[in-house]
Nucleic acid binder design. Structure first.
Lengths: 358, 358
DNA sequence: GTACCCTTCTAAATCGATACAGTAGACCGG
DNA sequence: CCGGTCTACTGTATCGATTTAGAAGGGTAC
């Protein structure tokens, strides 16, 4: 069944090299012979050089690995992730490079490590995974280029980074909220605790959070609150089971249904924030009047829903990540990029309701 | 820099085979030696067998290719697609197999074909792409297993298929609608025409549509209408630019804003249907009263929005596709599976408004 | 006619591993 | 002490291509 270069070469009485050239370097042989070779190949059912063999010889695979925490479904549920991946794909496609999804299942750490060690790729993109099950160590051992969108500190010195000022951006949202006079504030995030449930969490010190993005975004809010004379201990911390709209709504219920209802809920992702809006709609609460809500990412749905949020250039982030990975600059200064963000004010935020100051 | 099996073997004075066995077949050597080998490897910075070389020798790559039409962003915008992929990932992960995304850019047919010919994979999954740029021909030439969720007829005899009865399912939705007395009916789909715009389209004969899913779902509606004594020419056909909520809303506007407003809009995907609901909300129209709306797929948001739709087991479809691909049964009867669907009636459908019969 | 170049093709080395057959030595029963 | 069976390891062929240096043949310049 499986024909090889040699098969075709033998059939025509030419050398293997020539057949190879017919596919990979057309300028190295006469057009006439090339045509005969391709013709013969077609007859023999030979569909071109074996990609694996070619990769071995060339030392280039033509794919980059994309790491995921948790299930793939979950990883793609967030439109931010999808946009980022779209950008990444744009960049890699231009260089004839594919994207290999490498799921890191939490149930099976060994399997995850094996998957990383055995993935045939030219580099890795770590975009939504914290240092999961020692995955970074495995990756670094392979001495392949790695680009991450997260933790610039935890990443090795050789790692490529494209990031945003998570803490500063989040602080902007916090300042926007305290500027409106809000004092009963809640922050909503995923996996603030290892218990996977929807509800309030005690978090004495947000600096101690292990997950970079959670830590930075929550600390940003804290900074704004403290700068305005407030105290971190007054901020209600809510955990959502997963980064989904439904879990956002369920977790937000705890802030909305208690006696002293929070007047502002700052979610660390738009998906969660939209869940908050869902929960409010179910209770007849008006965004921006009864309760103010902010998100993070500025996904397309945010605009539709009038959600005040932090815009970050998701697609561009992916594109740049891809370019860095495939064309890693030597200059250390060029190996780390920080992209701008901006606060987008829409209708989901407004002045604190009167009489809510207590 | 790059250590190989041989490097490690030489350093220890053992044979290359033994080092290989230390990684791949631990039972073939004494635990003590194995430990020494792994230790030495670590010191030399050798991170395990080169995946490409291993693939070549083993004849198995450990990845399956997933084909996309259009941009990756678009392919992942539909929760149905994400669920399907999640199921696929479940099945492949269990077999230590990764997912390689292969984008088929419309701009660059040659690039798309090259990507297919050069993808290092053990099989292909074609799940949302029609026969794009002759992609099926390229794939078939490689004589790798292929699974598709679509067109059972266009697919070669060797192709694995996991599908649903698209036409029958869609007809069920149509019967539900005509059963409610609706006669001013619109169908909404993506790419009914090659012009990419939102709005009405003349479609004398739906059987002539080139895209399988569009054709089948639309014909299903037609069958229901005709069976109820109606005529296809009375059905308004709307095209949405892309399969997005926003485009669904924009296209639906044409059915909602005209003098003789459609009393029912049957969308071929939930995403489009949710767009229709958006458009209705913007106009103060009540789903199930003023206008009935149906979707297709039963994505999570459908439930939240009270959308009547056709449920299909998306995740399971992906899982089965993965299993078929990695464990293709010989028996032709087992190579094609048809999964059940069901009509889920929610609040977005109801009796035609009185006096709408003209 | 010789020297030189260009085009077109070939031969051999190489990429980094795995599979399989085979060997050396230990151990055991009789 | 011999045949037989294990265990632990080695040697060689092989997977399917690319690459490099170089050879054959024809053409051109002087």
């Amino acid at each position: 069944m499986s024909a090889t270069l040699q098969t075709v070469a033998d059939a025509l009485g030419v050398s293997r090299s020539t057949v190879s050239n017919a596919y990979s370097r057309p300028d190295q042989l006469s057009p006439a012979l090339r045509e005969r070779i391709l013709e013969t190949a077609r007859e023999l059912g030979y569909s071109g050089p074996n990609p694996t063999a070619r990769s071995l010889r060339r030392g280039r695979v033509g794919a980059v690995g994309v790491l995921f925490t948790g299930s793939l479904t979950q990883a793609f549920t967030d439109p931010y992730a999808v946009q980022f991946l779209g950008g990444l794909a744009q960049a890699t496609e231009r260089r004839d490079t594919g994207l290999l999804l490498v799921p890191l299942s939490a149930d099976d750490p060994d399997g995850a490590q094996r998957a990383l060690a055995e993935a045939a790729v030219d580099g890795f993109c770590v975009y939504c995974a914290p240092n999961w099950q020692g995955s970074l160590a495995v990756i670094n051992a392979r001495s392949l280029p790695v680009v991450t969108t997260e933790n610039p500190t935890e990443a090795g010195a050789a790692t490529l980074v494209v990031s945003i000022d998570e803490r500063g951006a989040s602080r902007t949202a916090g300042e926007h909220i305290v500027g409106f006079g809000h004092r009963r504030i809640a922050v909503l995030d995923t996996w603030v605790t290892t218990e996977r449930r929807n509800g309030p969490v005690r978090l004495p010190d947000p600096e101690s959070l292990p997950f970079y993005i959670s830590r930075e975004r929550i600390c940003g809010v804290r900074d704004a609150v403290v700068a305005a004379g407030g105290s971190w201990s007054d901020v209600l911390v809510l955990n959502a089971r997963d980064n989904t709209r439904a879990d956002g709504a369920a977790a937000a219920a705890h802030a909305l249904d208690r006696a002293q209802r929070s007047t502002a809920i700052l979610a660390t992702t738009d998906v969660l924030a939209l869940g908050v809006l869902d929960a409010m709609a179910a209770r007849g609460l008006r965004p921006g009047h009864d309760v103010s809500v902010t998100g993070f990412d500025d996904i397309p749905d945010a605009d539709r829903s009038g959600l005040t949020t932090i815009h970050q250039p998701s697609t561009e982030k992916g594109r740049i990540a891809g370019e860095l990975l495939l064309d890693a600059p030597e200059d250390p200064a060029l190996r780390r990029k920080v992209l701008p963000t901006s606060l987008i004010v829409r209708s989901s935020t407004g002045p604190a309701p009167v009489g809510s100051s207590s």
